[in-house]
Structures are given as C-alpha cells and as structure tokens.
Amino acid sequence: MHGTGVPLITPFDADGDLDEERLREVVRWVEDGGVDFIVPCGSNSEAELMGVEERARVVEVVADETELPVLAGTGHPGLSETLRQTDLAAEAGADAALVVTPFYYGHDGETLEAYYRDVADESPIPVYLYSVPTYTDVKLSPEVVGRLAGHDNVAGMKDSSGDIETFQRERRLTDDEEFDLLVGSGSVYAHALASGGDGGILGLANVAPERASEIFKLHQAGEDRSARQLNAELVELNRAVTSKHGVPGAKAAMAERGVDAGYPRKPHREVGDDVRAEIEALVDDLTP
C-alpha cells in the first residue's frame, strides 16, 4: 500500500444498524477525492463497536464498491478472533489485513513479536502491523518492527504514535526489506513522507480526501516545502476530527461537506451545537 489511505468512516442509521447504502456513498466520496487505498474497520471506522460478522460485511461492501486496494482492519485482543476475522476479510475481498496490537492485557515486546508471527504464518493475505498507543496503551518498539519486517507475510505497518523519531527509526530498521511504512497521524503526514514514509492512513481523508491526497502528490513531485505548508494548514481540522472530537466530529465534518456519514454508534453521541459550529468553520476555511 502506497499513497494516501483512508480509515473509512462507517455509517450507522438512527437505530445503530449498519447503513450499507450510505457506506457505498462514502466509498465513492473518498474515491472521487483521490485516495489511493481504502481501510475499512479501523479505529475511525468504529470497528471495536462492531461484531466479527458485521465487520466482515463492511469489508465485503467496500470491496464490492471499489476497485482500489482494500486493507481491512482485522485485529482483536486475542489470536483466535484475529485469525477468524482475517480469514473472513480475505473471503470478503480484502487485499491485506491491518492488525492492531493486542490490547487490554499488557504484553512485552517478545510476546507481541510472537503474536504477529503467528498471525502472519496463518493469514491468507499480507499482514500490516498497527501501532496506535493512544487507544491501546501498547506501542510496538522499532526493534520488534525491524525483526518482523523480515517475515515473508508481513508487508508493512501503520504507525499512529505521531512520534517522528520512532517513525524514522522504524524506517531505518526496515530499509532492507519490502516493507510499506505508513503514518497514521494526519498532523505529521508531510514530515513522515520526508522521513521515508510510503504513505499514510489518515482520518482527515474522510473529511478532505482531496487535500490529504494533495500532500502526497506534492511530496512525489519533490515539493516537500509546499507539502509541509499544506499539512500545517490542515492541522487544526485534522485535530478536530480525530483526537479532539473523534468519530462524531468526523461525521459532523462530513455532513458539512455534503456527505451523509450517518450516526455515530453508541456510546458515541452526536456533537453539540458549539462543536458543530467549530467544525463547520474549520471545514469552510480549509476545504475547496
């Protein structure tokens, strides 16, 4: 996976059920916005609020709707559920699996490495590591990443730590392998690309797919200064629809752009009027 990927928002109706037609519309929206690949069932997708079969159905709908590569989130706290989810994703048409670090219980680096080797050994599709310590309180070390990069079925990683030093170390330790290193924080996208990243999986790309994609295109054209400048302009919007207001904020921002992304699934709640006004102002200022 290279370029700009989107951890696809999952639309739910007012009763909390998956809205498949809206999901298809969201796929078309991000595709028209220029993203390079689609990531259903990630953190921004509310995957942890969905069951195994429901997540598989989301992947199936997305894979049916798009010709872009599909990197499906399949990670669970336990190995058995992760392997089952990965098999279902492959059957649904996913091209690769994004596997979050096991969470809830604490695990040391040796345990995490063994876990990923087990997943990669059994997975019918390539595996991407996923480190998102903000949500899991688990962070893969660059040394573990470097060793796992040598596995034949470990294809890359999404690093959502936001730590450029860690990202640079991961790049150095995986340089000798065919390993796609992707950043998960839109606020440092341009900086990660300049540090050797192959792309990003950005919550921002749900709201402003054309702007997020533009950062990568500027980098490809050798215009890293312009890429950093654009990235800086988008930091407040990115922050509003990720760390500050989360999925409800992202869905409100998409509505402002004319995209019906449905309701957030409980226990999430829709944003209030003050937050909606804040988000609308950011969207109006920073998107075409």
Rank of each mutant, 00 (worst) to 15 (best):
L83E: 12
E54M: 09
G75S: 13
Q168R: 15
D224K: 04
A212V: 12
G106W: 15
F179Y: 03
S195M: 04
A149N: 01
E46Y: 08
N238R: 02
L98D: 04
E223V: 04
V247L: 08
E256M: 12
V61K: 06
A92P: 06
M50V: 07
G258Q: 06
A92M: 09
L49F: 13
P102W: 10
E170F: 01
L8H: 04
E170C: 12
E91A: 09
P77Q: 08
D284A: 05
G186D: 01
E178A: 07
D121H: 14
R228E: 11
R28Q: 13
A194Q: 08
E233K: 00
T4H: 03
Y189N: 01
S80D: 13
P126V: 06
F216P: 03
T174S: 03
A253F: 06
T242S: 13
G42L: 06
F167M: 09
A277C: 06
Y116T: 05
G34S: 07
A120F: 10
N44H: 15
A14Q: 03
E223C: 10
A194T: 11
V52Y: 08
I215W: 05
E54C: 05
V58E: 07
R211Q: 15
D273H: 15
I279T: 04
E280P: 01
A205E: 02
A94N: 00
V119E: 03
H2F: 14
S161P: 10
D284L: 02
Q229K: 14
A63R: 12
L112Y: 05
L68I: 10
E46I: 06
E170A: 09
E53P: 03
A205I: 11
D285V: 00
